[in-house]
C-alpha cells in the first residue's frame, strides 16, 4: 500500500515537472588528517549513497560511517570506537543545494559550482557554505566532485593530548560521485 502510494506520488511528481533524480550507491568520500612525518591518518569510503535533483540542484548524501576503511586496522578500530563512535552515530549525512544549478549549464568540461548545506557527523550538524564543486556531464550521467575542510572540534570530536600532534584538526574531505539518471 505504502509503495503504491509512493509510486503514484512519484508519477504525479514526474508529470508535473521535468526534473529528475540522479543517483549513485557507490560514491567515494575520503578524508585525511595526516601530519607530515607521522603515520598517515587517512580513510576512504566507496559505497556512499547520493541523490541529486537535477531540476533544482538539491543534493543529499549518506555515509555509513563503519564503511570507512583505513590502511591500519588499529587506526580503523580507534576511529570507530573513540572518535566517530560509529556504534552510537552510524550515519553521516550531507543535505544541501547546488547554487544556480541548471542542467543546461553542464557539458563534458568541468564546470565550477558552489554548494551550501548541512553536514551531520558524530551527532553534530554544521552549516557549510560555498563549497566548490566541479560538475561534468557525460553519456553516463553527472559527475560531481570536490573537497572541503572540516574541523574535528566542530563535530565534538576530542583528540587526546597524546596523539594531538599526530592528527590534524583540519580534516580534508574529498568526494566524488558518478550520478546516474534514475
Amino acid at each position: 500500500m505504502k509503495k503504491t502510494f509512493f509510486l503514484i506520488a512519484l508519477f504525479i511528481g514526474l508529470g508535473l515537472s521535468a526534473q529528475s533524480k540522479y543517483l549513485t550507491k557507490k560514491g567515494t568520500v575520503a578524508f585525511e588528517a595526516s601530519v607530515p612525518s607521522f603515520e598517515e591518518v587517512k580513510a576512504s569510503h566507496n559505497s556512499v549513497t547520493t541523490i541529486m535533483n537535477s531540476g533544482n540542484g538539491e543534493f543529499a548524501s549518506l555515509v555509513l560511517v563503519k564503511g570507512f576503511r583505513f590502511k591500519n586496522a588499529l587506526m580503523e578500530e580507534h576511529f570507530n570506537e573513540n572518535y566517530a563512535e560509529s556504534d552510537t552515530y552510524p550515519k553521516a549525512t550531507f543535505k544541501g543545494k547546488i547554487l544556480d544549478f541548471s542542467l543546461d549549464k553542464l557539458n563534458a568540461e568541468k564546470q565550477s559550482f558552489l554548494i551550501n548545506g548541512q553536514l551531520t557527523f558524530h551527532g553534530k550538524t554544521k552549516q557549510l557554505d560555498n563549497i566548490n564543486v566541479d560538475i561534468t556531464l557525460n553519456e553516463e550521467g553527472i559527475i560531481v566532485s570536490g573537497s572541503f575542510l572540516a574541523n574535528a572540534s566542530d563535530f565534538d570530536i576530542k583528540i587526546p593530548k597524546v596523539v594531538k600532534n599526530k592528527i590534524a584538526n583540519d580534516i580534508e574531505v574529498t568526494f566524488d560521485f558518478s550520478l546516474k539518471k534514475k
Binding site: 549513497t49 549518506l62 555509513l64 563503519k66 564503511g67 552510524p90
Partner: peptide, 16 residues
C-alpha cells in the same frame, strides 16, 4: 559480508 548499516535514502541494508 559485514553489515555497515541501513541506508534510509534507498531503504537498503548495506554490506561491505
Amino acid at each position: 559480508g559485514r553489515c555497515i548499516g541501513y541506508d534510509d535514502l534507498l531503504e537498503q541494508v548495506k554490506l561491505d
